[in-house]
Design a protein around this nucleic acid. Sequence first.
DNA 1: GACGTATAAAACCATCTAGTTATAGAACCG
DNA 2: CGGTTCTATAACTAGATGGTTTTATACGTC
Lengths: 116, 116
Amino acid sequence: MAADILDATFAALADPTRRAILARLAEGDATVMELAAPFAMSQPGVSKHLRVLERAGLISRGRDAQRRPCRLEAGRLKTAMDWLADYRSYWEESYQRLDDLLGELEAGTSSERETR
Amino acid sequence: MAADILDATFAALADPTRRAILARLAEGDATVMELAAPFAMSQPGVSKHLRVLERAGLISRGRDAQRRPCRLEAGRLKTAMDWLADYRSYWEESYQRLDDLLGELEAGTSSERETR
DNA sequence: GACGTATAAAACCATCTAGTTATAGAACCG
DNA sequence: CGGTTCTATAACTAGATGGTTTTATACGTC
């Protein structure tokens, strides 16, 4: 469900510059110039990253004279986290023991794989 | 910390085919043929996706005669989730009210932005 | 109206991506 | 040994991505 939202969200998060921009925005809204300052990158380069983040719904932009202040929109981060949460049991200790047990049972009963 | 791991993990998750492969592996280990079956895609196409998942550390592969069974490795999913968890407060209700309050305070005291 | 500042858009380039087909390697079956 | 099955590699293509420089737009100020 909503595959393209996850596509865009994870793709946007797969870049260190964009993650750093989100981290900065977590401290409060910021203009493009403020966001660009820490990076050895041209202003249009940062603008392109912001467009990716905006199209993924991870930020929104206001208007303040010439400035276009950016704001973190955390909803899509929650969507991504909700997807990951489905796998939580697979990295938790209690599951690991259960998984090992099931593996032994499967190996003991039959060589056929449960495709179900 | 560990930026390229997050890069590779999020990039791997940004594709619906790869997410579907992970979902399938959550039900148990599977061979390449088993994983390829649900998709209208060539076998080498699936193999390439598996290589991306393996290089991201999201799966591991064993050896069973000609077969290379794939197994879900959830550790990297936890790493991604840990990163997202830092933003949890930004999408939670209680935070939203705090954020609004801080916004009003900032607007009321000064037009200068706290860059700290 | 002219100038400076903040941002976006255009055009371009190199590299990566997701897919294909065709081929090769590795292991089993007879 | 010969054929079949499973998987990986190679070579190719079209399109996306991340960056650049240059140019245009929008707004505030003098």
